[in-house]
Design a protein around this nucleic acid. Structure first.
Length: 647
RNA sequence: GCUGAUGUAGCUCAACAGGUAGAGCAGCGCACUCGUAAUGCGCAGGUCGCCGGUUCAAAUCCGGCCAUCAGCUCCA
């Protein structure tokens, strides 16, 4: 094909490249030809191409004037093609080793790929090694990935004959007019839209990571398949770096750090019911104090509602019908009671215990409410997913005309609080679920309000169809843990239904009774989950203002203990959390301990300091800061704490 | 809840092929009195997740349950 390029061809096509330069190529040339024309390096690193906006195989012939971008592993789409092709190699390897396996699907995902298989015997971890070896054989053979298009009936017949029931189901579900495409490499054929790498040999480093069950098509009513996860890279070194990164991330795991730093613990005695230890409590109380300050400033009033309430209330709120599966129950004097899974009904009762005027609106009731939810045993995860947690809740009652502005002010509060910790977050809009109460009209109205509020602020968000609460749509704020898994923290839910159910009213300008609109919202989400995220975000090295121990005094020898205690008492007077390492150890040892425990400030005290009434300051990140008068140190630390400096 | 894996001292992990448990760190004691990431010696610490079975003998083999981990489903 290289010769074709140099041969004068009758017909040419104009190709506009990524740098918006334009060049002519013979009609029918491929993206790969053009990559080769650009540079040797480009030809080597190219994995696929974007032709007029669509990602295609490198060997796709081009017959029309087009815009073309050569994709490499560094492009997100290129990465997907690379991993997707690796998934096909995985499927081929499994098929070679276990010929009676049935294939599910095998897409690329963030950081890798997976493939779902159905096989009577279950894969053992040892099998992964054998499969990986087989994959490397397939890579070595450098099979071409070849695209084939088939008539629907032929494709159905093809997979039926091979006993690939899942593929048959997939084809049957494809729209009538859709072209059916298959890809083959060597003997292996798979239903696939593509695109793919030119050949298996392009895959340079593969690693199978783990094994898990996954329901066919993500539906728990379907049979469970065996999913193999893996990843691949164009360089061995990149794979090693990736694996190292995972290892490092595991060291930041809040469950591990939480134990090490004595923040909290989880016991068999109470699965999903975390125990907070003194140091974890310090962190928690600091967060709550901060939260109270911010909410007072933002015009919220705090309330507290009971944990246990009568069944009739839950019937009224709709929880009995829509949320019973997740609730715990008890009985008192022969009557049914429920342990609250949400705070809203309590807040409704507070609202309805008096008359309200439109002049009070928006009326903001905040509540640190402890809720219990029966989560499935398999989903429990440290502090991130528990069965009892404290929501930093609020219920805001207002006029319909105040919706947009109020939602925007909650969004602003979320943003302000998250920024305190340098969190980056992403936002989802969740719409009407299948078990919802209320009419489509009301839902439509609520969803539109949320959209408008966000669009006006030019926020980026994705829409999560059918994932709203049963009483209203919501805006969700997601934060990431150390492994990049995301957890929903903040949420803003617009509710026209609860006020209806509880017959809430306010007296309007006209002197008549009207129905208020309500917002449910949390910012931390749950204090427990938020603390989990915080631990992983900072790797345990918290900003000074929330550090359980802010200053540790390290006396050099026993004779410096008295001076250490004197300094400690002095620091204590400033409300700074300080402790003395009284152990009879060398200073290097004490420093190591304090470093491991991520104490922000260490004060080394010996003869020199005692003599000059000084302290030697060491910061956990910067190291030795030299010695200075205590007063000066106090000034620096107090200011850092007061301003809540985030590192 | 489902699939797979794991469960031994406060923590991290050993104990080959059944013969009633061992190390490092942490803790405690003693000596050293020390200057910015581990001083030395000694002591103590275990219902081997729980229940049952096989066996002369079970941490080890088998069954049930519980918890944890990864993922699926679900959610703050």
């Amino acid at each position: 094909m290289a010769t074709e390029l140099s041969r004068p061809a009758a017909e040419k096509v104009k190709i506009r490249l990524k740098d918006s330069s334009e060049k002519e190529y013979p009609k029918g040339c491929t993206a790969f030809d053009i990559a080769r024309d650009i540079s040797q390096r480009m030809a080597k690193t190219a994995v696929a191409a974007r032709l007029n906006g669509k990602v295609v195989d490198l060997n796709t012939p081009i017959y029309q004037n087009s815009s073309l971008e050569i994709l490499t592993f560094d492009d997100e789409d290129g990465k997907d093609v690379y991993r997707h092709s690796t998934a096909h190699v995985l499927a081929q390897a499994v098929k070679n080793l276990f010929p009676n396996v049935k294939l599910g699907i095998g897409p690329p995902i963030e950081d890798g790929f997976y493939y779902d298989f159905s096989l009577p015997k279950s894969f053992k971890p040892e099998d992964l090694e054998a499969i990986e070896k087989e994959m490397n054989e397939i890579i070595k053979k450098d099979y071409q990935f070849v695209r084939h298009e088939m008539q629907r009936e032929d494709a159905l017949e093809f997979f039926r004959k091979r006993g690939e029931d899942y593929k048959v189901e997939l084809i049957n579900d494809l729209p009538e007019e859709e072209k059916i495409s298959l890809y083959s490499q060597g003997e292996f054929w798979d239903l696939c839209v593509g695109p793919h790498l030119p050949s298996t040999g392009r895959i340079k480093a593969v690693k199978l990571l783990n094994l898990a069950g996954a329901y066919w098509r993500g539906n728990e009513k379907n049979e469970m398949m065996q999913r193999i996860y893996g990843t691949s890279f164009p360089k061995k070194r990149m794979l090693e770096d990736y694996l190292k990164r995972i290892e490092e991330a595991k060291k930041r795991d809040h469950r591990r750090l939480g134990t090490q730093m004595e923040l909290f613990s989880l016991k068999e005695a109470g699965p999903g019911f975390p125990f907070f230890h003194p140091k974890g409590m310090v962190l928690r109380i600091e967060l709550e104090n901060f939260w109270r300050e911010e909410h007072k400033k933002a015009g919220y009033q705090e309330i507290k509602t009971p944990i246990i309430l009568n069944r009739t209330l839950w019937e009224q709120s709709g929880h009995w019908e829509h949320y019973r599966e997740n609730m715990y129950f008890t009985s008192i004097d022969g009557e049914d009671y429920a342990i609250k899974p949400m705070n809203c009904p309590g807040a409704m009762l507070v609202y309805s215990s008096g008359q309200h005027s439109y002049r009070e609106f928006p009326l903001r009731f905040a509540e640190m409410g402890l809720v219990h939810r029966h989560e499935l045993s398999g989903v429990l995860h440290g502090l991130m997913r528990v069965r009892a947690f404290t929501q930093d809740d609020a219920h805001i009652f207002m006029l319909p005309s105040q919706i947009k502005e109020e939602i925007q002010s909650v969004i602003a509060l979320v943003d302000r609080i998250y920024k305190m910790f340098n969190f980056s977050y992403y936002v989802e809009l969740s719409t009407k679920p299948s078990n919802a109460m209320g009419s489509d009209d009301i839902w439509e109205k609520a969803i539109t309000s949320l959209k408008e509020a966000m669009d006006e602020k030019e926020m980026e968000y994705t829409v999560n169809e059918g994932e709203g609460a049963f009483y209203g749509p919501k805006i969700d704020f997601h934060l990431q843990d150390s492994l990049g898994r995301t957890w929903q923290c903040g949420t803003i839910q617009l509710d026209f239904l609860m006020p209806e159910k509880f017959n809430l009213t306010y007296i309007g300008e006209d002197g008549n009774k009207h129905r208020p609109v309500m917002i449910h919202r949390v910012i931390f989400g749950s204090i427990e989950r938020f603390i989990g995220i915080l631990i992983e975000h900072y790797g345990g090295a918290f900003p000074t203002w929330i550090s359980p121990v802010q200053v540790r005094i390290l006396p050099i020898a026993e004779r410096h203990l008295d001076y250490a205690y004197k300094i400690r008492d002095e620091i204590n007077k400033y409300g700074i959390r300080v402790e003395v390492d009284t152990r009879n150890e060398k200073v290097g040892y004490k420093i190591r301990q304090a470093q491991i425990e991520k104490v922000p400030y260490m004060l080394v005290l010996g003869d020199k300091e005692k003599e000059n009434e000084n302290v030697s300051v060491r910061k956990r990140k910067e190291g030795d800061q030299g010695s200075k008068p205590l007063k000066e140190f106090l000034k620096i630390v107090s200011k850092e704490i007061k301003l809540k400096v985030a590192e």
